[in-house]
Structures are given as structure tokens and as C-alpha cells.
Design a protein around this nucleic acid. Structure first.
Length: 800
RNA sequence: GCGGGCGUGGCGGAAUUGGCAGACGCGCCGGACUUAGGAUCCGGUGGCUUACCCGUGCAGGUUCAACUCCUGUCGCCCGCACCA
């Protein structure tokens, strides 16, 4: 009798839905467990197998914890603002609201077909005005706190999408949405001062449970470095050229200075620079380069000397030339460096190209060939000469700089402030009003949400202007402060806004008076376990930790860190071992798998295919293996029900319950499933099992394959839903065998095994080993040098 | 260049953290049942010159014992990258 998943799976999905089986309680005496998965962007293409794997991990943990008596909050929602929907709207003329609603409905239906135990009463949609009201509210709070500000700066700009991108959205010089080359453009844009939280974002990781790579990637992204700022006088002026260096100890080796081509001092002293035409030509050349060309394709150093401007080395008092070169970035440090060619490879290459002096100040290496970047004894360095540790030299020089007012210790970060706006329609309107008289004024809190107006035309303006700028009714308003005519901000927030606090809204999704009720936040926060993609570790995770720390500072949330534990699932690759992509044609549609094999098979397979945290290729034939497993489980229902089980099978049940219980918590889903497969094989060999045993099996299988578990549970007269039944306990004493197989080695080589009673002592074990015919014949005639015994494991007889 | 990780049968992957390498699944081989099998069930399956011996990318080392620890080396994947 084959398993009819096509009727059984929808049957239970309907029952779970009607009974609201997986709703979390707002208050409960049970311990709480908040499991969070990254809510999807509801794209028109629908669900991807990647979603299934990403959600199945904590789905299994949540289902198990529920059965163990936890009040589990396992929510889902939709991160629906974003460019793809808007681009689709531009192409088809269908309003993004309609597209989004349709996609969400489609996605919801698909998610339900997998049987995920989400709390469907708490679904949120970031594009719903009752949600983005609070996104805007948080922005306003940040504006009030001085954390949201406008600045004119060089920004990453995507000419194709016509939007300003954050650093995080333009990694590798490519637009994150359309992958075209990003250019640098000077523009007046919104920023969030995330750098103010840089130290806390690093230090807070100490209290987060996460793999080394998850933590390290964030630390590297923030990129904290310590060093010093040094002011170099510019000869003949009162001007100081301020630089940042991590190696103030090498100050005596400075033989030239380099400024970024965009450095403001160039314009200020244009009339003193004799070769200003060359300089401007070089600047123009740099401006044309894309970020990619400027950073990725460089082989040789280029630059121009500023004729007529010189800096003075504050310790040697010697004049050193100043260059501009595009290997120095305006966006890091002060946009200018002191160059020490003997001890920095980039400076070395530049000095070689331009024939500049190289002065060695640390002993070691061969500075004819390359810069010596290690530490050693200081030479040619005045009061530092003779010191041998970098730390000491840096400390002494920094102290000198501070005493003489030349410089000071300083910290720099690779992470920049977060460029926080899009010149697009489909995003949260930024709740700010520009008044000629009062400056920037926040939209009053009581007027939030500031609704997105209806428009006909979603095309962005050609000059990087938001479509909202074309709607006079939206733009023209009154200043909330002085009442005079004013203009509304027309930029919208970037996609990351809504996801920066969504986990808080799940706790109280319908609250109209606060982003969430404080008592409920106190109860559910922090998120106990957050699983998502590795690709979000340096963006969404950092962004949301930043927002959360801000909300903590203003007293809105009860904890500093939002996530207690963060894990990441590995990718599912295509059957060819390559990353799945439409262009490669190796994409697997999860709905195809459901219609061919059922949701339980799909769920089991994505967790069985390998280590959850590692990527693994899809294999259709391996899916069939899971299909066979599910069918064999169904077969248990028609197997003879023994009155009493065999002792061996009983022990196997206890062992399996133990293994599954432990493996789930460690995300070792593959081995948990393997052990259940083994148990099923053993039941088939035994030929019968008790109804109780079948009930136990249903319950441990339930987190993985909940539909078939419910059906069998019902047919054997289980009470209530299997999904909410009590998780089975195991008896530790029944998981250990009375006799064990002990390996026997001779001189470290495996020669055979012997059966021994558990806990057998060394003498008895050795005696038994020597009685073994084969062992006896090997050791015969040899001296025994040593005898090693590991209880219940191994006997090793070392002979000469 | 920096940071993180990975190399185990024909394939995906296990291995209680130094103690029987290859669990479980796929594939393959054989058998049963069949008009039939891409269904199901049962058995086998690392290699080999088969009582032996060799096997966890490669070369060494530590140890009674190494996939596991150490040194060196090669290859692959991911993230960041002229960050001063």
C-alpha cells in the first residue's frame, strides 16, 4: 500500500492552519524559545530550494522544542520593498503594491505546501503602512539623535539602477542588484552614523554564539585599526596636512606624502601648484575610473607631484615632496598618507616608479628588492633608534607626538557611515521636510506613517532624482516648525531598512501604539537562535545589530544584542556542482519535488544531503533515497505489531531517540536522519514492532517529516496532534549494551575484535585477547613490551 | 595580499574529538517476485597479487595508536582587498 502524500499532506496542512497549531503565546509559564529565519523577499519567481534549506533547520529545532514544552515563536514575514519589484512595475506598468500582494500570496501558498510550522498570525509585510510607520519612527529617532544626517560626499552610484548604493551594496565595485559597474559621484545624500557604533559592534560579538567565520567576517568588515594622526606642516603656509598611520614608529623613514586626488587642499592651494593643469588632468582621469578599475586592475602606481607644495617631516625637519595618487582613497583615514617606502610595499612601488629616496629605519630584509614590513631594531630614527619591539616604538613615538602637539593616537575603521537612501519609489519615504528657514525638520511623530503616494510613473529621474519628486502634492507641504511652505524629502530608504528591526515586530505585530509592547519584548527578546545566509553576515546582521543597539540606547528594547546565537546554512548547488542560476539552467524548483515526491521527502532530503552548514550539490537520485525512506516508514503501519518487542530493538529505540534529540540541537540533521533510517532498517529485519514504539518513532520523525507522522499517529490512535505531542524521553541505561565489541591491536595494527562484557577490566580484557586464536598466533614467540587498554574500546599489545 | 573553511570509496557524506576508517544514502553487482520493472524485498559492494598487505590531497614528525595533533607542501571554495 503506497503512501498517498497528495491527499495526506494537504489534509494536515489544513488542520494545522485551522487549529492554529503553531501560534506562540504572548505570555506563558513555559520557557520561551524565539527561533528566527531570514524572511524572504517575495520575488515573482517564487520559492527556491535555498529557502527550503534555510528554513528547514530551525523548523526542525522549533518543532522539537515545541514538543519539549517550550513556548516557541517561529515567525515569518516578507521583506517586500526593493528594486526588482519596482523594475517589474516599470516594465509592465503594474503597480508595485499589486505585484507585491500577488507575490506574497503566491509565496505564502508555497510555504504552506512545505508544511513549515510558522506562526501565521504574525505575518508582517515591510511595505504595509502599519509596518513602515515604525521604520520611519526609528529613522526619526535617529534623526533626532543626530545619527541620521545629510552630507555631500563621493558616493557609489549605479548608473543603470540610477541609485546611490552603500558600500555594502557595491562590493567589488559592482551593483548588488544589476551587477553593472558602480561609479563614484559627488552627491548630497543621507547617512546613518553606524561608525559611532563600530566598537560596540565588534565588542558585542563576545556575547554572541556564532562560528569563528561569522564573527571574523564582521570584525574584518568593521576593520578597526589603531594608529596615530600626524600633522605635517606645509612649508610656506600655516596649513597642516593631517594623515593617519598605523606605523608612527616609521616616521623617520617618511620621504614623501601622498594625497587622494579628491583631497580638498589641492583646490585650496591651486594657485601655488605650478603644474596645476597636470594635476587637474590626473584628477579628471581618476574620476572617470570605476571603483573596479581603480582598485582591482592596478598593476603600476600612477600619480603626479605637486610642484610648489612641500611638507615638513616633523621629526627630521626635512622637506618632503607631496604627490597625488589614486592608490590613496579619500574615503579612508584623512585621505592623505605619510609614505615610508622602506617599510610599505605600496609606497615602495611608488618610490621606485618616481625615483624617490628610500630610507630604512628598521633593520632587516633587503630594501633594494621590496619593502621590509616586519619588525626589528630601529635605526636612523633619533630617539627611537635601538628599540626592538614595534609596540614600544609606536608607544614612544605616539607619546612624543602628543607631547609636542604634532599628533595623537587614533582609531580608524574600514566600515563607513551607511549611505541610506534610494532615489526610487518602492521604499519607505524618509520622514523629513526641508524648510528654507528652519533647515531639515522631522515629520511629526503623530503624522506617521508618511504614506507613499500613488503614482502612475515609477521611472526614476535622469539625474538621480526620485520619482516622488515629480508629484507636487507630495513634495509641497508646510514646515511643521514655522508653518511656511516647504519641500518634502523625496528619497526613500534602502531595502535594508525594513529588515533592520523586523524581529521586534514579530513579537507584537499588530500594535498601533508602539513598535512592540515593552512587556512582550522583555519576554521574547533576545532572539534565541537566528539562522540565515552567510551573505548577510556583513550587511543585514551588522545593520540590524546597529539599529538594535540604538533602540537599546533610547530605552525601547531590553537588550543590547538582538541575537543570542547566529548560524548559517550552506548553499545548495546545482546537480553539476555549480551555484544554481537561471543562466546555467541548473535550478531545481522545490514545487516540482513536492508534486513528485511530497513535502516530507523534500524536507528530509535538504537536511540529509550533507552537513547543514556546508554547501552540497543537489542529486535527484538521492532524493529518491529519501522517498524510499518515507515509503518504508509508511510500511511500518502495516507491519505485524509484536506484543513485546525484542530487547535489541528496544535498545535501538532508546539509542535513536538519544541521537536524534542531541543531533537536532547541534544542527547535525543528516546524522539524525541516518540514525532513523538505520532504525527503520532494523525494524524491517526484526519484522515486528509495538504500537508504542511506532508512536515513539512518529514523534522523533515529526520535526523532519511532519505530515506522515501525523497520519500514522492518528491511525494508531495517538492523542491530539503528533506535532504537539510530548517529545520522547530515552533511558540512558537502555542505550548502553551489556556486551561490547572491543578492537584488538598488535603493535597498533588492527588484528581483530573480541566480545567483552561492558566495563570489563584490563586483565580480563587482555586475557580474552590473548585467548583469541589469531592474536595468539601473532604474538607467539614475541616479547610483550607494553599492553594498552581503553575500557570498552581497544586492547593494544605491543610486541618486539 | 589578509581572514575563514575544505581535501575521506564511483558519488553525497559519517567517524563518540587521539582508539575497529568508510555509518546512512546514492550508484553499481547478484538473487527473489514478475508478461514486464525506472516498483518492492533479500544479499553484496574501498583497493589488491585476498589467510597477507595497502588505503583519509602530498612529504615528514609526535604516539602503543593519527582522517583527527605538529612542521612543510599542493589544490579547491567563500569573504574582504592599494584600508595607509
Amino acid at each position: 500500500m503506497t503512501y498517498d502524500f497528495k491527499t495526506i499532506e494537504p489534509k494536515w496542512q489544513k488542520i494545522w492552519d485551522e487549529k492554529k497549531a503553531f501560534s506562540a503565546e504572548d505570555k506563558s509559564d513555559k520557557p520561551k524559545f524565539y527561533a528566527l529565519v531570514e524572511f524572504p523577499y517575495p520575488s515573482g519567481a517564487g520559492m527556491h530550494v535555498g529557502h527550503i534549506k534555510a528554513y528547514s533547520g530551525l523548523e526542525v529545532v522549533s518543532r522539537k522544542r515545541r514538543m519539549q514544552g517550550y513556548n516557541v515563536l517561529f515567525p515569518i514575514g516578507f521583506d517586500a520593498f526593493g528594486l526588482p519589484t519596482e523594475n517589474y512595475a516599470i516594465k509592465t506598468g503594474i503597480h508595485p503594491r499589486k505585484v507585491t500582494d500577488k507575490n506574497i500570496a503566491h509565496f505564502t501558498e508555497q510555504l504552506k505546501q512545505v508544511g513549515f510550522s510558522f506562526d501565521w498570525d504574525r505575518v508582517i509585510d515591510t511595505t504595509d503602512e502599519s509596518y513602515y510607520k515604525w521604520t520611519q519612527w526609528i529613522f526619526r529617532k535617529m534623526f533626532d539623535a543626530g545619527l541620521a544626517f545629510r552630507d555631500t560626499a563621493l558616493v557609489n552610484y549605479c548608473p543603470s539602477c540610477k541609485v546611490v548604493l552603500s558600500n555594502e551594496d557595491s562590493q567589488g565595485g559592482k551593483c548588488d542588484v544589476c551587477h553593472s559597474d558602480v561609479i563614484q559621484k559627488s552627491k548630497d545624500v543621507w547617512y546613518l552614523r553606524i561608525t559611532k557604533y563600530a566598537d560596540r559592534l565588534i565588542d558585542g560579538l563576545e556575547n554572541v554564539e556564532a562560528s569563528a567565520s561569522i564573527k571574523q567576517q564582521q570584525v574584518n568588515w568593521i576593520g578597526r585599526s589603531t594608529g596615530a594622526f600626524v600633522n605635517f606642516s606645509i612649508s610656506g603656509t600655516d596649513e597642516k596636512l593631517k594623515i593617519y598611520t598605523t606605523r608612527p614608529d616609521t616616521l623617520y623613514g617618511v620621504t614623501f606624502m601622498v594625497m587622494a586626488p579628491e583631497h580638498p587642499l589641492i583646490e585650496k592651494y591651486a594657485d601655488r601648484i605650478k603644474n596645476i593643469d597636470d594635476v587637474n588632468a590626473y584628477k579628471a582621469e581618476c574620476a572617470k575610473k570605476t571603483e573596479f578599475e581603480r582598485t582591482q586592475l592596478v598593476k603600476t602606481k600612477t600619480g603626479v607631484k605637486l610642484e610648489g607644495l612641500c611638507a615638513i617631516n616633523p621629526v627630521t625637519k626635512k622637506e618632503v615632496p607631496i604627490y597625488i595618487a589614486d592608490y590613496v582613497m579619500m574615503g579612508y583615514g584623512t585621505g592623505a598618507i605619510m609614505a615610508v617606502p622602506a617599510h610599505d610595499q605600496r609606497d615602495f612601488e611608488f618610490a621606485k616608479t618616481f625615483g624617490i629616496d628610500i630610507v630604512q629605519v628598521i633593520k632587516g630584509g633587503d630594501i633594494e628588492k621590496e619593502a621590509f614590513t616586519e619588525s626589528g631594531e630601529m635605526i636612523n630614527s633619533g630617539f627611537l633608534s635601538g628599540l626592538t619591539t614595534k609596540e614600544e616604538s609606536i608607544a614612544k613615538m605616539t607619546a612624543y607626538l602628543e607631547e609636542n602637539g604634532i599628533g595623537e593616537a587614533g582609531v580608524q575603521y574600514k566600515m563607513k557611515d551607511w549611505a541610506f537612501n534610494r532615489q526610487r519609489y518602492w521604499g519607505e519615504p524618509i520622514p523629513i521636510i526641508h524648510c528654507k528657514y528652519c533647515g531639515m525638520v522631522g515629520v511629526p511623530y503623530e503624522e506617521l506613517p508618511l504614506r507613499l503616494p500613488d503614482v502612475e510613473n515609477f521611472e526614476p529621474g535622469t539625474d538621480g532624482e526620485s520619482p516622488l519628486a515629480k508629484i507636487p502634492e507630495f513634495v509641497n507641504c508646510k514646515c511643521p516648525k514655522c508653518g511656511r511652505a516647504a519641500r518634502r524629502e523625496t528619497d526613500t530608504m534602502p531595502q535594508w531598512a525594513g529588515s533592520s528591526w523586523y524581529f521586534l515586530r514579530f513579537i507584537d505585530p499588530h500594535n498601533e501604539n508602539a513598535l512592540a509592547d515593552r512587556e512582550k519584548l522583555d519576554y521574547f527578546m533576545p532572539v534565541d537562535w537566528y539562522n540565515g545566509g552567510m551573505e548577510h553576515v556583513t550587511r543585514h546582521v551588522i545593520y540590524s545589530r546597529f539599529w538594535h543597539k540604538f533602540l537599546y540606547d533610547i530605552g525601547v528594547v531590553p537588550c543590547d544584542e538582538p541575537y543570542k546565537k547566529r548560524t548559517a546554512q550552506g548553499l545548495i548547488l546545482g546537480p553539476d556542482g555549480e551555484k544554481m542560476s537561471k543562466s546555467r539552467g541548473n535550478v531545481v524548483d522545490p514545487l516540482d519535488v513536492i508534486s513528485e515526491h511530497g513535502a516530507d521527502v523534500l524536507r528530509t532530503y535538504v537536511l540529509f544531503m550533507g552537513d547543514y552548514t556546508m554547501s552540497a550539490p543537489w542529486s535527484d537520485s538521492s532524493v529518491r533515497g529519501c522517498r524510499r525512506f518515507i515509503e518504508r516508514v509508511w510500511g511500518l503501519l502495516f507491519m505485524q505489531k509484536g506484543k513485546g518487542s525484542t530487547e535489541k530493538l528496544e535498545s535501538s529505540f532508546h539509542k535513536t531517540v538519544k541521537k536524534v534529540t542531541n543531533d537536532i540541537e547541534q544542527m547535525k540533521f543528516n546524522t539524525a536522519i541516518a540514525s532513523m533510517m538505520s532504525l527503520v532498517n532494523e525494524i524491517y529485519e526484526t519484522g515486528s514492532l509495538t504500537t508504542d514504539e511506532l508512536g515513539t518513532f512518529c514523534r522523533i520523525l515529526s520535526p523532519f517529516a511532519p505530515h506522515i507522522s501525523e497520519e500514522i499517529w492518528e491511525r494508531i490512535g495517538g492523542r491530539g496532534l503528533c506535532s504537539l505531542a510530548q517529545w520522547p524521553e530515552y533511558d540512558e541505561s537502555k542505550t548502553v549494551d551489556s556486551t561490547v565489541t572491543v578492537a584488538v591491536q598488535v603493535s597498533g595494527k588492527m588484528k581483530g575484535t573480541i566480545q567483552l562484557p561492558k566495563g570489563c577490566d584490563k586483565d580480563a580484557a587482555l586475557a580474552a585477547a590473548k585467548r583469541d586464536e589469531k592474536i595468539a598466533s601473532i604474538i607467539e614467540g614475541h616479547d610483550i613490551i607494553k599492553e594498552i587498554f581503553v575500557p570498552d574500546r581497544i586492547v593494544n599489545i605491543v610486541i618486539k
